[in-house]
């Protein structure tokens, strides 16, 4: 726990690190992602192992609901073989939601637990780490290029990069190529930055609300019961309100990331 309100936010925005320079590892991000990844595989693996054709139980029905939802989203947009894209989309959808959900854990609780284990820092929200969001979006980026080459051939794709959208005139090759590069790069960057920005901001709002804790603690120390009550109730009400609103963002960001992945890969897959 940080000592003062000035330290509080920077403290909560610091990762538990190992290593130096580029070769630094965010232990908290990696650990939480691994934990959530295992949770995801455990939940869906259990459903997959027990999947029967007969009447599904409540748990199986819920998992199948998610699976069918993802499959339906892809079916609408992508008219090719879904056998790889669908599990990819499911993984992105569920993992982003699971990671985002970590934001709903009371903000000081993970740090306290990590403190018991001897760690000074612990950011519990893996999707508020650019490394996580870029890891996801770069995978999508590589797949976009892979599907483009698969659909058009390496030559065809290179041809498209240099001749679309302005035309095949050699003078336009460079402008075409630059424009296509920007368009291509915009996809992973926007995917990663959107998720990161939303979750980072959400986390920050929780921290700002938590600063009220210093206010009412101070008011109590000064003997101002009114100030204490206002700060205390205000913190509870605002945290609850923001958490409830944040549930929407958590689900929406997972959905957006999944749908954009599907859309980008569908665009790559289409012939021009």
């Amino acid at each position: 726990m940080a000592g003062s309100s000035a330290d509080y936010i920077p403290h909560h925005l610091t990762h538990l690190k190992v290593g130096e320079g580029f070769w630094t590892l965010h232990v908290d991000t990696l650990f939480m992602t691994a934990l959530l990844g295992v949770t995801f595989l455990w939940i869906f693996g259990a459903a997959a192992r027990k999947a029967t054709v007969g009447v599904p139980g409540r748990f199986q029905a819920f998992i199948e609901l998610v699976v069918e939802f993802v499959d339906g989203q892809i079916k609408e947009v992508f008219h090719g073989d879904r056998s790889f894209l669908a599990p990819l989309a499911l993984t992105i959808f569920v993992m982003v939601i699971l990671m985002n959900t970590m934001d709903l854990i009371p903000i000081d609780l993970p740090g306290m637990i990590a403190g018991l284990a001897g760690a000074h820092y612990w950011r519990v929200l893996p999707s508020a780490d650019l490394n996580t969001t870029f890891a996801l979006s770069l995978t999508v980026f590589v797949l976009v290029i892979f599907y483009s080459i698969k659909a058009k051939g390496a030559g065809g794709y290179a041809h498209e990069l240099f001749t679309a959208p302005f035309g095949a005139n050699p003078a336009l090759w460079i402008p075409n190529f630059i424009l296509n590069l920007v368009e291509l790069a915009a996809k992973p960057v926007s995917l990663a930055m959107r998720l990161f920005g939303n979750m980072y901001a959400g986390e920050l709002v929780f921290m700002l609300i938590a600063l009220l804790g210093f206010a009412w603690a101070g008011a109590l120390a000064d003997g101002s019961i009114f100030g204490f009550a206002l700060g205390f109730l205000g913190q509870i009400l605002m945290t609850a309100a923001w958490a409830i609103f944040h549930v929407l963002i958590i689900l929406l960001q997972g959905f957006i990331f999944m749908v954009l992945t599907i859309v980008y890969i569908s665009m790559a897959h289409e012939h021009h």
Partner: peptide, 24 residues
């Protein structure tokens, strides 16, 4: 951005692969 991204990439690929092969 640091080496964490490598770990996250590998972890994500494992998740996707496992989902692709055994869950979906």
């Amino acid at each position: 951005i640091n080496a964490t991204i490598i770990g996250q990439l590998l972890g994500f690929l494992v998740l996707v692969w496992f989902t692709w092969k055994f869950i979906w």
